[in-house]
Design a protein around this nucleic acid. Structure first.
Length: 742
DNA sequence: AGACTCACG
DNA sequence: ACGTACGTGAGTCTC
């Protein structure tokens, strides 16, 4: 009997708390037995290996070797080929040429797609068969160079930037195409294998499958190969089929769909990704990359990727069709991939000097606040620690806590709670100011300049297409969808987002798109009329629920009406409204009742959304995007109500997301058709998407024309029962923007 | 790794 | 009687 314990993380659903996380220890052998019995396979192979006699008492490193060995025996049944010389390549290439569709996957030395050095590419067009082309020592030397700040990614160019072959040396192994001669003559030629592959990868009629294919597109673009015929991204296919989960990585899908456990990156590279604790201690972390993995292991790994990407594509596509998600997939999500690739590659220019200046000022102010806070508290403490702050406020200073809500660990110190206390003690306001400055300073002012790409001098975010439950995009490293705007210092940060000389930033945003969609989808006559009359919707709502004429609506009434209009979109109840509108509970309750009398069809729409989600098991958008809501039938009221709110919100938020995605695709095609210059640059670049806003960098003299064209595209994505209004603004930075008159 | 807090739509 | 708006990502503290 193994005594080794396995810790399992469990999400436990319990009444009134929704979920909680517990860690439970089990005997390892029991877990193996249990998982087998339940056919719950995900961890099974690994656990079996680790509890085998062979692995007992071995070090982590030795266990890793055992796992890899076992894995290599596992894939013996597959035909994975390593292609290293021209003879093999020619044989492979003859077969590739006959294919109408295939999966491919690129392996690179780093994860920075602007300078990712290609190590190899794997291909598969038949389950269980794959080829890995090693190209790392075939790179043409002497092509090192800087990316121009304004390189165009697609349609045509990404400045060549291949920094020779690095450590592998610029040895040219091939004599295809008289390659050596051409290099000697100083001709600008690609690696000969890549040159052969280029027409196939660029052929629109040959379908390509990939997993997170945006990455491979960007890598190939570094080699001036413009991948076309992008048919299936299996990550996105999985996302559309099940948007609620985040398990869309290839390893997880391979396992859940085929019961095959792939070798993981960690197994392959050891503790490369292990925590950066070593960094903090000043110990230099080993920087292992794919480049350091022996080719015998790497080719199997890569072939497995291509193989299972192919199999997944073949399996998931019929499933998408069956669920009627194929149109959304083929006409929105897949065409969007290339748009996002271009946006990420373009990046946005940042005024780092300006941020450095703000940083200094902010740091000074933070120091001053610290001193004042310590004085008020009567001692020094870490203000960033909620634990210590809680102790100072609620114990040392005895600030009354009747109104303060609790978190799992004790009394809350969140902004809302502090606002309630702001008149009770002078320290509260100081802490509020301190929090704002520290937040902006650490998350933006100091963080953004560090992420500027050295080659391009610009900030390149990643847009993730398979994260959100509603169909929105998300943005990481850095998140450029949450750049401050609500406070004065926040707006200063926006000022650091600038355009190149000779260019302007152009912003276009949908005006009240979710409310307009609510009007359209509910068919509510009063709401539709308000939008048709181009009236101020919040004023109209205020007039209706207070039963006064619009001219009698004061600021306070409008503010409350605005809160209720937004609250409705999220299924908010009286308590929530009383908080956001800052009115008593009874008043909020009255308001909501009155609101549903005025906007009868909105109430019906809400009820219908819930009923439909209950019947079908999912909420859906106008474009058939789904969000599964199994909990809408929960017997726990809390849980059920939460699912009902999601059923109300998702069709609105999700349809808005669908609309802007369609607009982006159309705009992208327009830009490439009309604004490509002869230097393969573009006078118009799409830079960012912030849910209902698109940000462009546009040649100054073309701003007016472009603004009009884009506005028209955005407004006409779909025909609604109400007008769709897009506001256009232009400026030399993201803060000071003036309306563009059309 | 989780909890908390807070930036955005 | 419960808690109370939807959707994200990141920095920091704590263990």
């Amino acid at each position: 009997m193994s005594k080794k314990l396995v810790t399992i993380k469990c999400d436990v659903k319990i009444p009134f708390k929704l979920t909680d996380t517990r860690f439970v220890n089990f005997n390892q052998d029991d877990v193996v037995a249990l998982f087998s019995e339940l056919e719950f396979k995900s961890l099974l192979p690994r656990l079996q290996i680790l509890s085998s006699k062979q692995a007992k008492g071995k070090s982590k490193e030795e266990q890793r070797e055992i796992i890899i060995d076992k894995y290599e025996r596992n894939i013996k049944k597959f035909k994975y080929h390593l292609i290293q010389d021209d003879k093999e390549f020619k044989k492979f290439f003859t077969k590739l040429k006959q294919q109408k569709e295939f999966a491919f996957d690129t392996e690179t030395a780093s994860f920075d797609t602007l300078s990712a050095e290609l190590l190899g590419i794997s291909f598969s067009w038949k389950a269980g068969v794959a080829y890995y082309l090693e190209v790392r020592s075939n790179l043409p030397a002497g092509k090192a160079g800087k990316l121009p700040a304004h390189h165009a990614y697609l349609p045509d160019s990404l400045a060549s930037r291949q920094a020779g072959a690095g450590k592998a040396g610029g040895e040219v192994r091939s004599d295809l195409f008289n390659y050596k001669d051409r290099v000697k003559k100083g001709e600008n030629v690609l690696n000969p294998w890549l040159e052969k592959l280029k027409p196939i990868l660029e052929n629109k009629n040959i379908k390509k499958f990939g997993h997170n294919i945006k990455y491979d597109i960007k890598v190939m673009a570094c080699y001036e190969i413009k991948v076309q015929g992008i048919a299936v991204d299996t990550m996105i296919a999985s996302y559309l089929l099940n948007p609620g989960t985040r398990q869309h990585n290839l390893d997880a899908l391979t396992f859940s769909e085929f019961g095959h456990q792939k070798i993981t990156k960690t197994d392959l590279m050891g503790s490369t990704f292990a925590k950066a604790t070593a960094d903090k201690k000043g110990v230099k972390r080993k920087n292992i990359t794919f480049a350091d993995v022996p080719i015998e292991k790497l080719y199997n790994y890569s072939c497995e990727d291509a193989d299972f990407t192919y199999r997944l594509a073949k399996k998931l596509m019929p499933e998408l069709k069956k669920q009627k998600l194929d149109k959304l997939f083929n006409e929105i999500e897949m065409p969007l991939v290339i748009v996002l690739a271009q946006m990420e590659t373009s990046g946005i220019k940042i005024d780092s000097k300006f941020l450095a200046k703000i940083s200094q000022n902010t740091k000074k102010k933070i120091k001053q606040l610290e001193i004042k806070i310590y004085k008020q508290a009567g001692k020094k403490f870490n203000i960033n620690s909620t634990q210590q702050l809680r102790e100072v406020l609620y114990e040392k200073l005895n600030i009354p806590t009747e109104t303060v809500s609790k978190t799992k660990t004790g009394l809350s110190t969140a902004a809302d709670e502090l606002t309630k206390l702001k008149d009770l003690h002078p320290i509260i306001k100081l802490i509020q100011q301190y929090r704002e400055l520290v937040k902006l300073s650490t998350t933006y002012i100091d963080a953004l300049p560090k992420l500027v790409n050295k080659q391009t001098g610009r900030l390149h975010t990643s847009f993730n297409q398979s994260v959100t439950a509603t169909g929105r995009l998300s943005s990481t490293e850095p998140n450029l969808q949450n750049i401050p705007i609500r406070t004065a210092l926040g707006r200063e940060i926006r000022q650091a987002f600038i355009a190149e000389p000779g260019y302007k930033l152009l912003s276009l945003d949908y005006s009240q798109i979710e409310l307009r969609l609510a009007a359209h989808m509910s068919g509510d006559k009063k709401m539709i009329k308000a939008f048709l009359d181009n009236a101020d919707i919040h004023t109209m709502t205020a007039a209706e629920i207070n039963q006064v004429s619009p001219s009698q609506v004061d600021r306070e009434m409008r503010r409350q009406a605005k809160a209720i209009n937004f609250g409705i979109l999220y299924g908010q109840g009286p308590h929530g409204l009383s908080q956001t509108a800052d009115i008593p509970y009874w008043r909020a309750k009255e308001f909501i009742e009155e609101y549903f009398i005025v906007y009868k069809e909105v109430k019906k729409f809400i009820d219908k959304s819930i009923a439909s989600a209950r019947k079908k098991g999912y909420a859906e958008t106008l474009f058939n995007r789904r969000r599964y809501l199994p909990e809408i039938n929960s017997s726990v009221m809390q849980v059920r109500k939460a699912a009902e709110r999601m059923a109300i919100n998702m069709p609105l938020q999700g349809t808005a997301a669908d609309m802007i995605k369609i607009a982006m695709i159309e705009i992208y095609s327009r830009i490439n058709r009309e604004y490509k210059t002869n230097t393969r640059e573009s006078d118009v670049k799409m830079l960012l998407q912030v849910h209902d806003e698109l940000l462009f960098e546009v040649k100054s003299d073309k701003v007016d024309k472009v603004a009009g064209e884009i506005k028209k595209i955005m407004e006409n994505v779909i025909k609604l029962k109400v007008p769709v209004i897009v506001d256009a603004k232009v400026g030399s930075n993201w803060r000071e923007m003036k309306e563009v008159k059309s």
